[in-house]
Each structure stands twice: as structure tokens, then as C-alpha cells.
Amino acid sequence: MRIPCPLCGERDASEFTYLGDAGPRRPDPTAPDAAEAFHDYLHLRDNPAGWHVELWYHEAGCRSWLQVSRNTLTHELGEVRRAEDLGLDEPSP
């Protein structure tokens, strides 16, 4: 599999480390249901057959954490963005 890193260009998947689903957002630790929310954040994952947005780390490259759209059936890659850039779109907790 080849992942187009926004900084380094297209690179072999062996340069990257996989984390998993990019969907879950770290919950507010001060919320009254924080324990439950953290449980869900850590342990509940969808396992879709098809498009999946996930986190990859370009460990043997620029060290960017990337948000990668990947089709789990075909390994086709869609949009790839640096997580850092995405995060700046949202207010920091």
C-alpha cells in the first residue's frame, strides 16, 4: 500500500505506523459522565467494510500524524491530511 503523505509525497506503507479509527474525539474530562465517555472513546470502534477514516503516523518520514481515508475492502486511499492542520480548524480543549 502507498500513502500520499502531504509533506513527503507518496510513500510505502512500511514507513508508517497504524493507530486506527480517527473518528473518536478525546472527551471533556470535566464532564459529569467523563468516565463513561472515556470508556467509549477508548474501546468502541466501528469496523466498516468500505471507507474508513483512520490515523497513521509517518514514523520513518516526517513524523506527521495523518488522517487517512482508506477503503478497507480495496485499500484504495482517499483524502490524506495532517492531523495537526485538521486540529487547528477546531477549538483546542
Binding site: 493507530l19 478525546r26 490515523l55 503516523y57 513524523r63 506527521s64 500524524w65 495532517r82 492531523a83 495537526e84 492542520d85 485538521l86 486540529g87 487547528l88 477549538p91 483546542s92 480543549p93
Partner: peptide, 12 residues
């Protein structure tokens, strides 16, 4: 740490 910096708290 890079995960925390880039994914969790990119504003820092």
C-alpha cells in the same frame, strides 16, 4: 507524545 501534540492538542 507526537500523537498528543499533533492530534489531541495541536493548538499548543
Amino acid at each position: 507524545l507526537e500523537f498528543c501534540r499533533q492530534v489531541l492538542w495541536p493548538g499548543l
